[in-house]
């Protein structure tokens, strides 16, 4: 015979469970706020200090001993060019590696080993990449302290991110698409070219841009390979020199990047340079946010085109 349920006890249990639920959600919000609020405070502080400094001249002037005349021209041009090299190097290699691992690689221990290594590479501190690049690119390959060395270094740094993003994006494609393609007699390459890559491009793009957003703020590896601080000229324009050799002059030019310019300004005695640093920081954060915004927009646009 069943005992009549003790309503009181059940209500108590429910109330207790709900209390825990509340407690956890409060804890969750608090943890979230630690990150969000500290970012907001830092960003606001930087914006208040830096934004008044953001005139047109700030973007078109070279560094100077006079804080009021100093600008970020060589820094932002350097950053843009380095990012270009990084993207050109990391994207094809990363995507190819990701596609290979997902679509071609046999599932054996060698593949397993490679996968573990890629995951590990994503966690290696950036300074290690800097030291590697100093030995390999700068001295061994004789590329010097150039835009090319810096771009390749950052490409190595974001390669794991691109590979992992590519694989995730490819895995999200339903298996039946592949099967349908193979059933029509397509080769693996045809399947990849006509189906896998187009459908996964949204995810891949997001990964690439998030990787780039990380690379743009990297300071340690760039300093290690020997980026400069004072540089009051621009590298030659890409692909504008006399072909064929002159077109690549810009790759070997000395350069500086935004984080280094900022770092130098924060350590100067004059308070006015701190304002410059804040302004440069604002621009850099804005660049990163813009890249992330672009990633979200592209993902939205490309996803709309996928119909399955």
């Amino acid at each position: 015979m069943l005992k009549a349920p003790d309503l009181q006890a059940i209500r108590q249990i429910i109330a207790r469970a709900k209390r825990w639920d509340m407690l956890f959600s409060v804890l969750g919000i608090l943890s979230l706020m630690v990150g969000v609020l500290s970012f907001c405070v830092l960003f606001a502080d930087m914006a208040i200090k830096g934004v008044p400094r953001l005139e047109w001249e700030f973007f078109t002037s070279f560094p100077s001993r006079r804080a009021a005349n100093a600008g970020i021209l060589s820094a932002w041009v350097g950053t843009v060019l380095v990012m270009m090299v990084t993207a050109l190097a990391a994207v094809p290699v990363g995507i190819a590696a990701g596609v290979y691992l997902e679509e071609y690689a046999p599932k054996n221990w060698v593949t397993g080993l490679i996968e573990i290594n890629i995951t590990n590479l994503a966690g290696v501190p950036s300074i290690v990449y800097g030291l590697l690049a100093l030995g390999l690119f700068v001295y061994q390959f004789g590329l010097g302290q150039s835009i090319l060395s810096a771009g390749l270094t950052l490409a190595l740094l974001i390669l794991p991110v691109v590979i992992v993003a590519t694989r995730e994006a490819i895995r999200a494609i339903p298996q039946m698409i592949r099967e349908g393609s193979y059933a029509c007699g397509a080769t693996t390459w045809q399947t990849v070219r006509d189906h896998i890559l187009p459908y996964s491009s949204a995810g891949i793009l997001t990964g690439v841009i998030i990787g780039m957003a990380r690379a743009i703020g990297e300071t340690a590896p760039i300093i290690t390979i020997g980026a400069l601080t004072f540089i009051a000229f621009l590298p030659p324009a890409p692909f504008a020199g006399d072909p064929p050799a002159g077109m690549f002059d810009w790759l070997f030019a000395p350069f500086t990047v935004m984080p280094i310019q900022m770092f130098n300004w924060t350590s100067r005695p004059e308070a006015a340079f701190t304002v410059n640093a804040a302004a440069a920081g604002f621009v850099l954060v804005f660049m990163t946010l813009a890249m992330n915004g672009l990633a979200i927009y592209l993902r939205y646009r490309l996803r709309k085109n996928i119909k399955w």
Binding site: F233, L234, P235, A237, P238, A240
Partner: peptide
């Protein structure tokens, strides 16, 4: 466009 923008220095 990028090339033109930068060619001032080149």
């Amino acid at each position: 466009a990028v090339a033109a923008a930068l060619s001032v220095s080149a």
